[in-house]
Design a protein around this nucleic acid. Structure first.
Lengths: 198, 198
DNA sequence: GTTAGCATGTAAGGAGTTACATGATTTT
DNA sequence: AAAATCATGTAACTCCTTACATGCTAAC
């Protein structure tokens, strides 16, 4: 049974939400979208597709008699769409970690403003916890550290601070859109709020 | 047998290079040093210690008769020190990936300038490859992407660019130290070159 | 004297990769 | 017609976590 890695399942559902795809192509897009934080091999993708098929999240045209074999094109079912929303909305504490947040963010345009806001805020508070704990541990051990370890810690801190500022901008933009447009903006998904990115 | 994860072995050798430690304490320091990119549980640490013991990289005082049990304090052997240098110097392509680079950088002060420089340059060229491939894929697909995916890609690119600049500074500093002091600077390890970090 | 934290260890299992096996289709 | 690359799939193996089992030692 093997409780499938949420991240791979999420990514497959997200990609198939746009258009039907076969495994080989799916894997290329997977590693293009998630490329920065994660890569998957066929050895994990194909078994995952198999299981998602039995669960009913996805389907393929097995209808035709002796149709062209080779490519097996999967598409999302209605249950699969629901499942995608559930996965995106799920706020298990691990959802704020680097990889899981990244995977959710990639498919942001496929969910609604309330969920987006919750994810962004969850991520931000996760990063702020991390900042606090790193700063504390740095204050405790600063004297004992060589300059390389210090330089790494410093660079790490600044990266996290940068991400927090980025999240602040995104959150501000989301709130504006929500306030002005109200609930019914679930329709203008494809465009998104276009936050400033300088 | 299980070809042990280089990263855990490296970290243990690096920590014991400073002072003898027992497993429990080792794990705390491990997750403090590597904290940002990696965490280990006892379930991987203790078996690793056991194997490193049989390989002769580390040793513990089994000499005393019925000495205080409970804590088992490990120290680095001469072979262990060599092994640490080998691991730090090893330039397997995977050595430039995030986690592996981080682990090497943490123990930079424990190796010599030539190795440091090679690692920094290896990491930089790895990042430049990544930049090139992300930029290429972005150029190809820019039109098809929603603004969220674009924002994430943009933020990711800027993070990598920032790290490249950071590496450039470190490399420049290393080169200066090497040129001025020559080979014999292996002695002033503990201090390090103190690059500017603004 | 009992709770909390220190300290060591192991067995089962999860999540994924590598390497292999196989065949179709396109390119040269 | 050979070589490359598209396409699917599986078995073995790696690395690590979780959960458990066990006892010591300090604090209240």
């Amino acid at each position: 049974m093997s409780r499938r890695a949420a991240i791979l399942e999420l990514a497959v559902l997200g990609l198939l939400h746009d258009s039907p795809l076969h495994g080989y192509e799916l894997r290329k897009r997977l590693n293009a979208s998630l490329g920065a934080f994660r890569a998957f091999s066929y050895g994990s993708l194909y078994p995952c597709l198999k299981e998602m098929l039995t669960r009913g999240w996805i389907a393929h045209d097995g209808g035709g008699s002796a149709s062209k074999r080779s490519r097996i094109v999967y598409r999302l079912t209605a249950e699969g769409k629901e499942r995608l929303q559930d996965l995106l909305a799920d706020s298990d504490p691990s959802a704020w970690e680097d990889e899981n947040f990244g995977a959710r963010f990639v498919f942001f345009a496929k969910t609604d403003a309330a969920v987006r806001l919750r994810i962004l805020e969850g991520r931000r508070s996760r990063l702020e916890e991390r900042l606090a704990s790193v700063r504390a541990s740095l204050a405790r051990t600063r004297e004992r550290l060589d300059s390389y370890t210090l330089a790494l810690a410093q660079h790490g801190l600044e990266s996290v601070e940068r991400e927090v500022r980025w999240l602040n901008e995104l959150i501000a933009t989301e709130r504006q859109s929500t306030t002005i447009v109200g609930q019914s903006q679930l329709r203008d998904e494809a465009a998104g709020p276009s936050p400033s990115l300088t």
